[in-house]
C-alpha cells in the first residue's frame, strides 16, 4: 500500500526545502534585532552616521527576508502534497500553530516590514523605530509558532485520539503552546539564530576593516554584534543543555544516538571526541567507537541532573531492560498490531450497527492505544536513527558553539580597545565565522530531525505511514525542480547581497 521509496523522496524533498529555508531564516531572526538596536541608538543620539549604518544593515536584511518567505511557503505546501496522511491524522493540532503563525505573526512582520523599508521619510522617527521592533518581534513570534508545531511532533501532548475519524484532536491548546520541548526548542533555536545574525554583521564588518573601507561603521557594528553574540552564545549553551535534558525524558533514543550510547549504564560518560564504528549494529558485540575520548559520569549528570544515575542506551530501548522498567520495541509492536486490528474491528462493527461488538473492540483498542504507531513498524531496529549522522552533527554543533563564545569575546575585547584593525588573522576568521555559524545551525536541525527517525510524530506515527499515496516519480521530479529553483534563488541572493556590500552604506 505504501511505497517506501516515496517516503525517502518525500523526506529528501522536505529536508532540502527545510535546509534551504534555514539558510535565510536565522539571518532574519538575528539581524532583525540588530537592526532594532542600531535604529534605537540612532533615535537616541540623532546622529546621521547611525541612521546610515541602520539603513545599510536593513537593506541586507530585506534582501534576505524575501527569499526566506519564498522557501517557507513551499514547506507548508509539502505537508499537503507529500504528507497528506500526516496532515489528515494530526491536522487539527498541527494546523493550529501554523495558522496562527500565518495570520498573527507573519502578517505583523509583513505589515511593519513595509513601514520599516519604505517609511523612512513618510512616518515619524519614533513610529519607524516602533515598526522595526515589530518586525523583529513578529519574525521571532513566527519562529515561536513554527517551533511549537515542531515541538509537538517531538513530544505530542494536549490531544486525544478519535477512533471514529482516526484523527488526533486537540484537547488542551495551552499544553501544546507551553510544552517544555517547544519552549526549549524556541529559546535554543532563536538564540542560535542571534549568533548567526551577529556573525553576519561581524563577517561583513571584518571584510570592510581588511579592505580599509567604512572603518568607523564597521567598528561600531562589531561592538554591538559581539555583545549580542556573546550573550546569545551563553544563553544558547544553557538552552541547549535544557534541550538535551528534555530529550532524556521525551526522546531517550535520540539522546542515546547522538551520544553514541549503545549499552545503558549508571554513571554514564560523554564521548567528547570520537570516531563512530560504521559496522556497529544494535545488539551486536562490536565496539561503538573506533576511537574515543570520554568524560566519565557527565552524561548521567546532564541527562538526569543526578550523578551516577542510569542513562538508557540504544540496546536497552530496542530490546528492553526489565530492571529499569523499559519495555522492548517488539512487545510494543505486538500491542500496536493488536490496536490496529481492534480499531478495524470497531469500525466494522460500527458500520454494521453492532453496538455491543463495537464497544468491546473499542475497549480492547484503548488498552493498546498508546502503542498504535508501533504496529506499523517492520522491525524493532527500525526505531534506531543513524548514530553516525546524529553523533557527528551534535558534536559539530557543540564544538562550534563553544568556540563561538571565545570568538565573540575576542571581538568584543579588541573592538572596545580599538585594536581590531591590526589583527588581520582574527578579521579573516571573522569573515569565515558566518559560514561556521551556518554549519553549526544546520547541524542542530540535523540532530533534531534525523534523531527522531523513524517517527513523523514521536511514538505515534512512523514516517512510512505519514506520506501521500502517490507515485515516486512526481516527488522525484519536484525534488530536482526545487533543487534548481532554490539554488537559483540562493545564487541570486548572494549576488545581490555581495553587490550591496561592495557598494557599502554610502550608496544608499
Amino acid at each position: 500500500m505504501f511505497d517506501l521509496q516515496m517516503v525517502d523522496w518525500a523526506r529528501a524533498q522536505f529536508a532540502l526545502t527545510a535546509m534551504y529555508h534555514w539558510l535565510f531564516v536565522p539571518l532574519t531572526l538575528g539581524l532583525s534585532f540588530l537592526c532594532a538596536f542600531f535604529e534605537t541608538i540612532y533615535v537616541r543620539t540623532g546622529r546621521e552616521e547611525w541612521k546610515n549604518l541602520t539603513r545599510f544593515w536593513m537593506t541586507l536584511f530585506g534582501i534576505n527576508f524575501a527569499i526566506g518567505v519564498a522557501t517557507g511557503i513551499i514547506l507548508e505546501f509539502e505537508f499537503g502534497t507529500n504528507w497528506s496522511n500526516y496532515s489528515w491524522m494530526v491536522g487539527d493540532i498541527f494546523g493550529a500553530p501554523l495558522a496562527i503563525e500565518g495570520i498573527v505573526a507573519f502578517f505583523l512582520e509583513a505589515t511593519f516590514f513595509a513601514v520599516m523599508f519604505f517609511g523612512w521619510d513618510r512616518v515619524s522617527k519614533n513610529f519607524h523605530l516602533f515598526s522595526t521592533w515589530m518586525v523583529a518581534i513578529g519574525s521571532n513570534l513566527s519562529a515561536l509558532w513554527i517551533l511549537v508545531a515542531n515541538g509537538w511532533m517531538q513530544y505530542p501532548i494536549g490531544m486525544a485520539f478519535n477512533p471514529d475519524t482516526v484523527r488526533f484532536e486537540m484537547e488542551n491548546f495551552w499544553a501544546v503552546l507551553f510544552s517544555p520541548v517547544a519552549l526549549a526548542k524556541f529559546t535554543h533555536t532563536t538564540s542560535s539564530s542571534f549568533i548567526v545574525g551577529s556573525f553576519f554583521v561581524i563577517a561583513v564588518s571584518s571584510w570592510y576593516l581588511l579592505k580599509g573601507r567604512h572603518i568607523e561603521m564597521a567598528k561600531k557594528s562589531i561592538i554591538v554584534a559581539s555583545v549580542f553574540g556573546l550573550l546569545s552564545a551563553t544563553y544558547a549553551a544553557w538552552t541547549g543543555d535544557e534541550s538535551a535534558y528534555s530529550n532524556a525524558s521525551t526522546q531517550p533514543m535520540k539522546l542515546a544516538a547522538y551520544e553514541g550510547l549503545y549499552d545503558g549504564e549508571k554513571n554514564a560518560g560523554i564521548v567528547a571526541l570520537g570516531v563512530v564504528n560504521p559496522a556497529k549494529q544494535p545488539g551486536d558485540q562490536q565496539q561503538p567507537f573506533l576511537f574515543e575520548i570520554k568524560i566519565p559520569g557527565l552524561l548521567s549528570l546532564l541527562a538526569n541532573r543526578e550523578l551516577g544515575s542510569f542513562v538508557p542506551g540504544i540496546n536497552d530501548l530496542v530490546y528492553g531492560n526489565e530492571q529499569e522498567g523499559i519495555t522492548s520495541v517488539a512487545a510494543r509492536m505486538e500491542k500496536g498490531r493488536e490496536a490496529i486490528s481492534d480499531l478495524a474491528a470497531y469500525k466494522t462493527a460500527k458500520r454494521a450497527g453492532d453496538a455491543t461488538a463495537a464497544e468491546i473492540s473499542l475497549a480492547r483498542f484503548n488498552t493498546n492505544r498508546d502503542s498504535l504507531g508501533y504496529g506499523y513498524l517492520e522491525s524493532p531496529e527500525q526505531t534506531v536513527p543513524s548514530v553516525a549522522i546524529t553523533f557527528y552533527a551534535f558534536h559539530i554543533m557543540v564544538f562550534f558553539g563553544t568556540f563561538f563564545l571565545l570568538l565573540f569575546l575576542l571581538f568584543l575585547i579588541f573592538s572596545v580597545k580599538d585594536t581590531l584593525a591590526g589583527k588581520r588573522g582574527l578579521l579573516m576568521l571573522g569573515v569565515g565565522s558566518f559560514f561556521l555559524a551556518m554549519i553549526a545551525s544546520q547541524s542542530g536541525w540535523v540532530v533534531a530531525e534525523v534523531g527522531r527517525q523513524p517517527w513523523a510524530i514521536q511514538g505515534l506515527l512512523p514516517v512510512n505511514v505519514a506520506t501521500t499515496d502517490i507515485g515516486t516519480g512526481s516527488v522525484q521530479a519536484t525534488f530536482f525542480m526545487f533543487l534548481a529553483v532554490f539554488t537559483l534563488l540562493l545564487a541570486a541572493e548572494i549576488k545581490i547581497m555581495l553587490k550591496q556590500i561592495k557598494i557599502g552604506p554610502e550608496g544608499l
Binding site: 534585532f33 541608538i41 507551553f178 529559546t187 561592538i223 544563553y235 572596545v416
Partner: peptide, 30 residues
C-alpha cells in the same frame, strides 16, 4: 523553568541592547 527560559529570552534582548550602548560609550563610539 518555563518562566525562567522565557524571562531569560526577553532579558537577553534588553541586556544586549544596554550592554552594547555601554560598550560603545566605553569605546567612545556611541
Amino acid at each position: 523553568m518555563t518562566a525562567l527560559l522565557l524571562g531569560g529570552w526577553v532579558a537577553l534582548i534588553f541586556v544586549s541592547y544596554r550592554l552594547s550602548v555601554s560598550m560603545l560609550k566605553k569605546a567612545g563610539k556611541f
